[in-house]
């Protein structure tokens, strides 16, 4: 997870001009880092490319809107990185 986190944090820092040292595994991308949905598209694009995956953003958004999941499950960075690791593992399985 640590290398995944480093990659994701670097992407966020570069994409959103956020100081890298303020981004931690506990950071909530929306609530703590103030990333909006348009910036998150850029981040998703960079993550998709970096890891060769397709973040299921629409599914996640739907689950949050339906009350089946919380934003913390997907947008706290340690959780986001865990999802990325799962997607990478599923792809290579």
């Amino acid at each position: 997870m640590s290398s995944t986190f480093d990659t994701v944090a670097n992407i966020i820092a570069e994409t959103c001009d956020i100081p890298r040292d303020t981004i931690t595994p506990e950071s909530h991308a929306i609530d703590d880092l103030g990333i909006d949905s348009l910036d998150f598209l850029d981040i998703a694009f960079a993550i998709d490319k970096a890891f060769g995956i397709k973040l299921p953003l629409e599914q996640w958004t739907q689950e949050v809107n339906d009350g089946k999941a919380t934003t913390e499950q997907y947008f706290v960075l340690k959780n986001l990185c865990a999802r990325i690791d799962e997607l990478v593992a599923a792809k290579s399985a």
Binding site: K54, L57, E58, T61
Partner: peptide
């Protein structure tokens, strides 16, 4: 260049 979930570049 890329088609993601709900977006295209």
């Amino acid at each position: 260049e890329h088609e993601g979930s709900g977006y295209v570049v």
